[in-house]
Design a binder for these strands. Structure first.
Length: 586
RNA sequence: GGGCCCGUGGUGUAGUGGCCUAACAUGCCUCCCUGUCACGGAGGAGAUCGCCGGUUCAAAUCCGGUCGGGCCCGCCA
């Protein structure tokens, strides 16, 4: 009878067969032990020369790591002193009688072990070997359980799973598309969907009550540690007859709560998943995805230091900007080189420099202290709440830049100083995103996030004098500083759509050309609807506490968008290109 | 597109002008070993230090370029 390592302890006295890989062979000359690894764990095979025939024993002597074998023998309880609690079948061993060599293996490029990790490059090149590691096996199983957990929840709440096309249309907004040439229509292209956004809205028009899908999304943008290249997964969902984003948030909250607590066994920082406005998030944490597991909030000193003697500060405020500070608790002793590194980081984030002070005997001191009056210095200490031994970092520039710089430093320091408790998950909703934003590069206003959101206040809301003050009914779920979902109450009214684009100077013809299908559909009785798209890879990353998404995906591309194992992308046959009417210039 | 960091036997690291004829761990090969479980013991093979060029009496080490990898900025409806 063929059984698995995890079940073998119940088979004492029986003759069973196990199959798997040789994890290790311990040859004592006369007595040989083999750790056989299957999907469920290890089983120790014991081979005694007097219990097997000679050819079999010789075969055992020839076994090497990762050979694939099938062993038959009797399950024997181990002596108490020989039991090994570290393996799944540690109270027994299989006294081998027969051995079948199912396949040989060349020496591996690295050992299959959770202890000695190779470089990521090597691991990705031989991902199939990396996946043999217990940790990766666990990850794959956990991920399947996570999917099933979510599926049950969605079904229980009356969501219908519907697949949408992978061959879709290029969309003018958003990320760079992956294009696919059409053979039947030379010169035309499909695009892989960045998200099933339009399809799911059309499903609402199609009378679907609630839709969801584990959607593959494709974006041709440069990857990051928390962003996969190419394809990634979203729990794409949409609900009809919903005019208030709070309904969608309330729907997702229990799922997040259960995933964090029951599934991941972690603690939620705030069980109520607080709502924070975009403005609040930016002003207090310098980020639209704040990690609330630690403080270090940005303190605005603009009104206090408007007329201080330090030109860098006073000029920034004079020019309509801000001066803010963060308190790095107990870090007054930070070394010169550490400060230099922080300054480098600040500069990379767009700062001109990084003024700092330290607090000694209740007083703020530093090389720039001489530019401040005693009064200014004590106001700084008072307003920031800094105490002896603390380090103060300043930002002085436009409000946006100061937020970005100090927010970036705050997050970085949170990592460096170990302020992010790995067993706690900070989950919150950031709401009221700006509908329009100033595009500095193009010197014009543009949609803040996407043109499908409903502007708050609807048609009249768009009349606001200051277009940048209009907020969208759009919301992001933030978990441990990662943007983990984005959603919105959608604009289902053609009139508002035309007007929203009109503000940017686009005429009706443009809107019809770009979003014809949606506009048309909306003319035939579109219900109000709202939805969201939680990022499945990223949330799983937070739940399992890793800081690189590639660790939670079976076959990820590397940082250059290359699959090191399959060597994609690759060149194709001339014939294939010819058929598609394509020629390469490089 | 830009910034920073890394590249040394199969794997992971040390070595940052001469003591390097390149060290350590692990893996690999041979032999010994009947209770190990990251078994142990003895011996052995395996690296033109990513590549090209330069500086120097002397380069793994310094400089320039290039290729590959990582992190970040830009970008990411």
């Amino acid at each position: 009878m063929r059984i698995f390592s995890k079940d073998i302890q119940n088979k004492v006295g029986e003759t069973v067969t196990v199959a798997g890989w040789v994890q290790s062979r311990r040859d004592h000359g006369g007595l040989v032990f083999i750790d056989l690894r299957d999907h469920s764990g290890l089983t120790q095979l014991t081979i005694r020369p007097d219990e097997v025939d000679k050819p079999t024993f010789e075969m055992v002597e020839g076994l090497r790591d990762e050979f694939v074998i099938e062993a038959t023998g009797q399950v024997v309880e181990r002596d108490e002193s020989l039991k090994n609690p570290n393996i799944v079948s540690g109270s027994v061993e299989l006294v081998m009688q027969n051995l079948r060599l199912l396949n040989k293996a060349e020496p591996l490029p690295f050992q299959v072990s959770d202890e000695n990790l190779s470089s990521e490059e090597t691991r990705l090149k031989y991902r199939y070997l990396d996946l043999r590691r217990p940790h990766m096996q666990d990850m794959l199983k956990k991920r399947a359980a996570y999917y099933s957990f979510i599926r049950s929840y969605m079904e229980a709440n009356d969501f219908t799973e519907i697949a949408t096309p992978i061959l879709a249309n290029s969309s003018p907004e958003g990320a760079r598309d992956f294009l696919l040439p059409s053979r039947l229509h030379p010169g035309k292209f499909y695009a892989l969907p960045q998200a099933p956004q339009q399809f799911k809205q059309l499903l609402m028009v199609g009378g679907v009550h609630r839709y969801y899908q584990f959607a593959t999304c494709f974006r041709d943008e440069d990857p990051r540690a928390d962003r996969l290249y190419g394809d990634f997964y979203q729990l794409d969902m949409e609900m009809s007859f919903v005019e208030d984003g709070e309904v969608v948030r309330n729907m997702i909250d229990p799922l997040v709560k259960n995933l964090v607590k029951d599934f991941a066994g972690k603690t939620l920082l705030d069980e109520d998943l607080p709502r924070m406005t975009f403005d609040d998030a930016m002003n207090r944490f310098g980020s639209d995805k704040p990690d609330l597991r630690f403080g270090m909030e940005l303190v605005d000193l603009s009104s206090e230091l408007a007329s201080c003697g330090f030109g860098v500060f006073s000029k920034a405020i004079e020019g309509g900007g801000s001066v803010k500070a963060i308190v790095v608790s107990g870090k007054a002793d930070m070394s010169r080189s550490q400060l230099d590194k922080l300054t480098e980081r600040a500069k990379q984030l767009g700062a001109g420099g990084m003024p700092y002070m330290t607090i000694e005997a209740g007083k703020a001191t530093s090389s720039i202290a001489k530019f401040f009056s005693d009064e200014d210095l004590s106001v700084i200490v008072e307003k920031t709440g800094a105490s002896d031994g603390d380090l103060l970092l300043f930002g002085a520039d436009s409000r946006e830049k100061v937020n970005k710089v100090l927010g970036g430093l705050r997050s970085h320091l949170g990592d460096e100083l170990g302020l992010k408790d790995p067993n706690v998950v900070s989950a919150l909703w950031v709401v009221d995103f700006p509908f329009y934003e100033w595009d500095e590069a193009a010197k014009k206003i543009d949609f803040g996030h996407n043109p499908f959101s409903m502007p708050k206040g609807g048609l009249e809301g768009l009349d606001a004098e200051d277009k940048l003050s209009i907020v969208a009914d759009q919301y992001d779920l933030v978990m441990n500083g990662y943007e983990c979902a984005s959603g919105a109450v959608r604009n289902h009214d053609p009139e508002i759509m035309y007007k929203a684009f009109g503000v940017l100077g686009y005429d009706a013809a443009y809107v019809e050309e770009k979003f014809g299908a949606m506009l048309n559909a909306f003319k035939f009785g579109a219900p109000p609807h709202a939805g969201a798209a939680p990022g499945l890879d990223r949330i799983f990353m937070v739940l399992t506490g890793v800081d690189n998404v590639r660790e939670v995906v079976a076959f990820p591309k590397n940082g250059s968008g290359v699959d090191l194992m399959m060597q994609s992308p690759s060149r194709v046959d001339e014939q294939q290109l010819k058929e598609l009417g394509i020629s390469c210039t490089s």
